[in-house]
């Protein structure tokens, strides 16, 4: 078994309104960052896991995202895996 670290990012689908992102965007604008055209808030998880290979770790994390970490009705996920 090898140890891996997975970085998982969850964001709302582009079609889902994100009032938190809009509020942060408004605050950035107020600070003078006029160039900010969009902010989407999300979640970030760091998982330490054991797996036989990075392919297996990838498969497992993908399944975790589908089953629990993200809600496919409203959210999208992406992740990257590092060997440690």
């Amino acid at each position: 078994m090898a140890r891996f670290r997975a970085h998982v990012y969850i964001t709302l689908k582009p079609t889902v309104n994100d009032p938190q992102g809009l509020t942060i965007q408004g605050a950035l604008k107020q600070l003078g960052y006029e160039g900010v055209k969009s902010v989407r808030a999300g979640k970030y998880f760091v998982l330490e896991l054991e797996a036989l290979s990075s392919q297996e770790a990838e498969k497992s994390v993908e399944e975790m995202c589908r089953r629990l970490l993200a809600n496919p009705v409203i959210e999208e996920f992406r992740f990257r895996i590092e060997g440690s």
């Binding site: 009032p19 938190q20 509020t23 809600n71 009705v73 409203i74």
Partner: peptide
């Protein structure tokens, strides 16, 4: 019930937060 898939859709953060 929505998370369990017994009802469709989802409940999101209130629009005004």
């Amino acid at each position: 019930l929505c998370e369990a898939g017994l009802l469709p859709g989802a409940l999101l953060r209130n629009e005004h937060l």
